[in-house]
Design a protein around this nucleic acid. Structure first.
Lengths: 249, 249
DNA sequence: AAAAGCCTTTCCGCAGTGCGGAATAGTTGG
DNA sequence: CCAACTATTCCGCACTGCGGAAAGGCTTTT
């Protein structure tokens, strides 16, 4: 039996799949739940969780009868944050925007076909999903991802957008909506999304650049309580105003 | 050949060792450097880095000719941050303290025999090491770790302190200094450390508790420019004052 | 330009590691 | 106590991961 990629280490990948399943879950997961989430047999899951526990990346919560990721996992993201020079510069802007609008505000970077939150300032308004550093979603359904795409040089944008479309199509997503949102962001310099990722959640975003680093500042929206008019009016004005004032053109 | 722990998956552990070596390094590492850092042969490193790259956790920087962790790694820490309810409550306090002192301020939690930064507000004063979420160091040589220890119920504190001492002794660390620092923190309700972790770096810290969650708020110190008198006087007063005002007794 | 030096990746024979079904152990609820 | 369910351990086995050697790639030196 010829293997396609003999350099790929399945056991390592399986272990990471377990950590990843936990990072995506809204709560700790039992051995059985991890088995179902990853498609691995329960005994395999047990051996891999045992290994991760020995190394300090997982712990078993007796009260919840389930596994959860430990703070040690934060260390794996440390160099990303420590090396991100624009983060300190962006933080005051996040804070001001959150105070001004009452909304949660985040700084987001792209990573392949996904975007990842690197800083979040909680507002007083509720969004249906808990937002924090490390939160992650596909570019295609994220205001921040679309804003970053729109701000790219045209050649790069076409290439990446094609990959995003292919991936989206393969998963049965709405390619036309993505294209329309991207076109709008290219035209306006700001992106708007509603209910594309999850029901009840949308966002607006503007791209930032600093020393070759690209990111987006975004306001996630609870679409149930923030109207499209408010999003495109008050919030967009505040976002663009703050970026212009504190960041520059 | 009987193996001590047949449930432990070496390949998974080796893969994580590579990610961990990168999380500890001050810069991206080449295949050879990873080999030396982990003790694994270069060909093994190459197969494991290849796997992590395929999965999106690593990328190769052509300009630096070295591997670096991607933002996807932040996702593994997401549930820790998202689940930490005291974080939002602590952030305004961090900000105020940083503004008041001009120093960097962090919120730190314990994780086994280490402590991990979960939030950092940069001050204008320079500390020799870049501080960010995910930064990690041993309890024994960290002001925050000692403050958390000191705030524990006595029984728990004795047990954990014994483990810290054993670990410290095994590594040739200064057990007496640790014990003295812990005793002082128990007496004063605030901990002080100088040059224990690294030359030129110290810190002060006070423990916080909220709904059974325990953390510490800490000011890392550049010992070369902040005197012991200043640390124990001005900075300690500001730290305790802010905690009393914004957090409560 | 060619050779030397160094590093990374791929190859591949091999043995022991990781696998997963079955058995055992542990926990909870009735 | 028994039944049901879940997690862990056992263990035969085969194939996966290993690592030294070879090949490939890149930079520096001659």
């Amino acid at each position: 039996m010829e293997r396609a990629d003999r350099q790929f280490v399945d056991a390592f990948a399986r272990g990471l799949a377990i950590l990843e399943a936990l990072s995506r879950a809204q709560r700790p997961l039992s051995n059985g739940e991890l088995s179902r989430a990853t498609g691995l047999p329960p005994s395999t899951v047990s051996r891999l969780t045992h290994t991760a526990m020995e190394l300090g990346y997982l712990r078993f919560s007796q009260s919840k009868r389930a596994y959860e990721l430990t703070p040690k996992n934060l260390a794996l993201g440390y160099p990303v944050l420590a090396g991100m020079t624009m983060l300190d510069r962006a933080k005051p802007m996040l804070k001001q925007l959150s105070e001004e609008t009452g909304e949660t505000v985040g700084l987001v970077i792209r990573d392949g076909l996904h975007v990842t939150f690197v800083e979040v300032v909680q507002g007083s308004e509720l969004v249906a999903v808990r937002l924090a550093t490390g939160g992650r979603l596909p570019v295609a359904v994220s205001a921040a991802g679309i804003a970053i795409l729109a701000a790219m040089p045209e050649r790069d944008r076409r290439l990446l957008a094609a990959r995003v479309c292919a991936h989206l199509a393969k998963r049965g997503g709405n390619v036309e909506a993505f294209k329309a949102n991207l076109a709008e962001a290219c035209e306006l310099g700001i992106s708007f999304i509603r209910d594309a990722w999850r029901r009840g959640i949308g966002g607006i975003a503007v791209a930032l650049e600093d020393n070759g680093e690209m990111a987006a500042i975004t306001i996630p929206i609870a679409t149930g309580s923030v109207s499209e008019a408010d999003m495109r009016g008050r919030l967009a004005d505040a976002l663009k105003g703050t970026v212009t004032t504190l960041w520059g053109p």
